[in-house]
Amino acid sequence: MIGLEFVNVLMGLMFAGVAIVNLRDRTSPKRYVNGAFWGLWAITFLVGTHLPNFVNGVIVLAMVAVLGIWKLGGAPAERSTREEREASAMKWGNKLFIPALTIPGVTVLGTLGFKYVTFHGAPLVDPKQVTLVSLGLATIAALIVGMIMLRPPIRAPMIEARRLMDAVSWAAVLPQMLAALGTMFALAGVGPIVATILQRWIPLDTPFVVVATYTVGMALFTSIMGNAFAAFPVMTAGIGLPLIVGKFGGSVAIMAAVGMVSGFCGTLMTPMAANFNIVPAALLELPDENAVIKVQIPTGLVLLVANTFIMYGFVFRK
């Protein structure tokens, strides 16, 4: 059965490739620093599953130490000029879109289709990881299509991957690190403490104040945790269920549905949701790492107000 470990090894191979291209690049002054950073990350993917948790923890701390002490080097220049790329774009025409669109295309097909594929009676792909495995296979399919079409040197994909990874730099690891921080918050019981503070300091005796505390609290706590999924159980157990439903008789479904999207408003406005906000800023080579958040804040705030009124308007109706 193809599952999560397949995707992990695939990612490990790619990051190892990025490390090797860095190490072999004599023109880069930071070749060993970047090589060590990506190489350590690659180890956690390739063999992390079989290492003790403590060893994995030490490897991650070593990555962060490399970054903190020596600072990562930036991306190398592109190997071609804009004129060369424009000429190539004319030559290939819209065929260039085929490999790019293979990724979403195969991912969707796999997500919908792998359910029905079995091998000796067992599902070929782990049903819980279908989307991830499909995405992993889709990138391989797209790479094969691209290689057959363009016929570049065999090492070209890794050289290009290294250019892009070094452009994104440490931000590539941030979403994973934030997920780890969320887990540590949960272990230390941060959520219940925040809910208790809210209950203690806000006079929760009218329906509107309770609804507004719940929606704004969802957004705020999501901003802290970087993830509405982490905020939802805490705020719902602390305020939603006991007050909106218990005390004022609101509808559970409306509270939960609108509460979750109120959390998403928080996701739009926080650097802690790095994969949505910080990573694209790095990927699009924006000098201000908060540029995407700044664009999203007006929409996030207006929607949060709208959510508060949507919930207040419908949740207490019988």
């Binding site: 999560l4 995707v7 992990n8 990612m11 790619m14 990051f15 956690t44 993917f45 992390g48 599953t49 948790n53 994995n56 923890g57 991650v60 592109e78 190997r79 071609s80 790329r85 424009e86 000429a87 190539s88 774009a89 004319m90 030559k91 290939w92 260039l96 490999p99 790019a100 990724i103 990881q129 991830l132 995405l135 992993g136 990138t139 797209a142 790479l143 691209g146 290689m147 363009l150 570049p152 070209a156 994909p157 890794m158 050289i159 290009e160 991957a161 250019r163 892009l164 990874m165 994104v168 590539a172 690891v173 979403p175 994973q176 690190m177 997920a179 780890a180 887990t183 540590m184 994969n275």
Partner: peptide, 25 residues
């Protein structure tokens, strides 16, 4: 916790082919 979050890195798998295509215009 860090290991359990590895799957969020899956988006980077798109980079080799995207980089290749960017090089081709």
């Amino acid at each position: 916790a860090f290991l359990d979050g590895r799957s969020v890195a899956v988006v980077w798998l798109a980079l080799p082919v995207i980089g290749l295509l960017e090089h081709a215009g």
